[in-house]
Design a binder for these strands. Structure first.
Lengths: 211, 211
DNA sequence: CAAGGTATCTTTACGCCGCTAAGATAGAGA
DNA sequence: TCTCTATCTTAGCGGCGTAAAGATACCTTG
């Protein structure tokens, strides 16, 4: 009486319940929003008892961290793809920025969880948890150097420029859903055009070409 | 048996309980953080029963909106002061930005509530709730125009430039508390110097003077 | 000044939450 | 086959947001 599905690699009673819980959490997250994401609801969605998750995650926060981790991975990939597809190194930063904001727009609840857990982790005694594991932040930094947006010989300048770009993109990402900007989006002829225009004003447009 | 304090204008049983609740909420907020701000805890802090707040606020959200409203007022004042004290119009925008981020740094929980309620309000059918009631956003916009940061004849350009500046400042404000930046703050010789350096990279430094 | 009305606050209760402890179960290793 | 142990369930604690109903004290009207 315990074989609802074709049984593919289920070592114990349920079989990779942590995976199922993370998936259930992400399903609920985008369907109902972050406020509806209770541990009990996740367990319900996954078809287990309310206490089952505690055998795989220390507490609710640890599950959210796992969800957020997958979010960072997705963001990494989106940024890598944007950089790879950029027509020129001068425009790469702009494409990365647009990809970043589009990711936040397309996964608003996940994006929120990502930064919420990051903030909570910050509160803990400082382990070396970088904003992103490695790749996204580094890609922005390298792109900035390659495109001449930072002095390659000045490590402080590099970090400042990267941080400035990241903060700008994050600010736009957080506010991109606000209703006040509807008319601006229309005036610019679409959401992405709006994003690009904002990045231009932030000094994150094409770098060497259009000074 | 109901006069714990000198009785200054207490029309009904308690006397301006809404005021007392908002104050209690703000006290709890900065003392314990946003996650500890339950309606019951606020009532406890104010010395009333858990159901008492419902005679003054429709629900928890409405109390948070009141708290957030006071936050926006405080931010208005901080920005007005920063603009008034700026040594020149070219540097006014930079001073406003620093004041903005310092406000968020000094009132992290309040700042969070401000944007959380703003986001929630966004979800509602679009009433004309601007980001800020009036003044802060307008001051940034006017400063941008006066300092030559936007084409005064192009209303779209003005709004884009203002939005870009606001988003940049918000992004930095949100991340200003992250631990990763400790060494950058030290390298720059202080937190405010760090903020200014980031604003420089965002194109929000002194405007006409240092291109 | 007395009577009634009403705004304010309390008590009680419901269902949900995060989390813990104790018991049942079923796969793994002897 | 027997035991061990990881996994999951049941039961329960205190706290949460909120609604309904009762008590209280001020305000108004006669």
């Amino acid at each position: 009486m315990r074989e609802t599905q074709p049984a593919e690699a289920r070592p114990y009673h349920h079989g990779d319940l942590s995976r199922a819980l993370i998936d259930a959490a992400r399903r609920l997250l985008e369907a109902e929003g972050p406020s509806a994401l209770s541990l009990r609801a996740v367990a319900r969605e996954a078809g287990v008892s309310p206490a089952a998750p505690y055998h795989h995650f220390k507490d609710k926060g640890e599950l959210l961290e796992a969800v957020a981790g997958e979010g960072w991975d997705m963001l990494d990939q989106a940024i890598a793809k944007a950089k790879a597809q950029a027509p020129s190194i001068e425009r790469a930063l702009n494409e990365i920025g647009v990809a970043y904001v589009c990711f936040a727009r397309d996964n608003p609840a996940l994006y929120r969880v990502m930064y919420d857990t990051a903030r909570d982790r910050e509160a803990l005694p400082g382990d070396m948890a970088t904003i992103d594991k490695d790749s996204a932040y580094c890609k922005v930094r390298d792109t900035l150097i390659e495109a001449g947006g930072a002095d390659p010989k000045d490590p402080i300048d590099i970090e400042l420029a990267t941080t400035a770009a990241w903060c700008s993109a994050h600010g736009l990402a957080e506010m991109s859903g606000f209703k006040q900007f509807e008319h601006l989006k229309e005036a610019m002829g679409g959401e992405e055009a709006f994003f690009r225009a904002i990045f231009q004003h932030m000094g994150l447009g094409a770098l060497r070409t259009k000074k």
